[in-house]
């Protein structure tokens, strides 16, 4: 589903050229749960931006479901982000002063889906992440874990091909982090492809495969041998 071939990313600031990604190649097939690990400055955020069609590589090609993302214009990239990718950010990034359900409806609004359908779908997704009773709360009225669950529901709104999570538990207490991981594993078991960036190995171990990055290069790529599973299920 995802095929990355020899991609590099160079940031040119004034006179200094920084090589953020250096000849990276890998493939991810549908249904995988992949963790991308690495110390800060290893290029994992850059990789995430490229995979999320937020940025394009300087060299190499990125194929997403058969489409060459590097050759698309702004609007086409916007559509890819809208329909094929669901983003989950470290800082949740919910719209301020906006209710949970409206946040979840937002990607569907940009896809031009009628309001009634949007509402129905958003309510269903919030139920799935255990927030049926918090639908009309705004971000500031929810805990970190609850906000992240709203963000997950929003990421799922357009039934995307992949979920891209950037340090999804970075700002969350460990108990709630477990809940988030449990949701991820449930989604993965239901067939969703998940790519998660993290620098914590115990979080990464919830994934089926771990890619280690260092200085913009892949240093290790393999299955997770001691995979953790969360059995507690979702608490609300």
């Amino acid at each position: 589903m995802i095929k990355v071939t020899h991609i590099s990313k160079v940031y040119a600031t004034d006179s200094v050229e920084t090589l953020a990604l250096d000849d990276v190649s890998f493939e991810i097939t549908a249904g995988e749960f992949v963790a991308i690990m690495g110390p800060s400055g290893s290029g994992k955020s850059t990789l995430m931006h490229i995979l999320g069609a937020l940025d394009v590589p300087s060299r190499g090609t990125y194929m997403l479901e058969g489409a060459d993302v590097g050759s698309l214009d702004d609007d086409a990239l916007a559509d890819i982000r809208n329909r094929k990718i669901g983003f989950i950010f470290q800082s949740y990034n919910l719209l301020p002063r906006t209710s949970a359900v409206k946040n979840v409806m937002l990607p569907m609004y940009y896809a031009g889906i009628p309001k009634a359908k949007r509402y129905e779908k958003a309510a269903g997704l919030l139920g799935k992440v255990g927030l049926s009773d918090r639908m009309h709360h705004t971000g500031s009225q929810l805990s970190g874990g609850q906000q992240q669950r709203v963000a997950i529901a929003r990421a799922l709104a357009m039934d995307p091909a992949i979920l891209l999570a950037d340090e999804p538990t970075g700002n969350i207490a460990s108990v709630q982090a477990e809940e988030i991981m449990s949701i991820f594993q449930d989604l993965n078991n239901a067939g969703h492809t998940i790519i998660m960036i993290t620098h914590e190995s115990d979080i990464a171990e919830h994934a089926g495969r771990i890619i280690y990055l260092k200085d913009g290069r892949i240093v290790r790529d393999g299955n997770c041998h001691r995979r953790r599973t969360v059995k507690t299920g979702v608490k609300s």
Binding site: D74, A78, D79, R81, N82, R83, F87, L95, L106, Y110
Partner: peptide, 12 residues
């Protein structure tokens, strides 16, 4: 907010 909206698929 604008960045977020674009990440969620807002066109220009």
């Amino acid at each position: 907010e604008i960045g977020l909206r674009k990440a969620l698929g807002a066109r220009k």
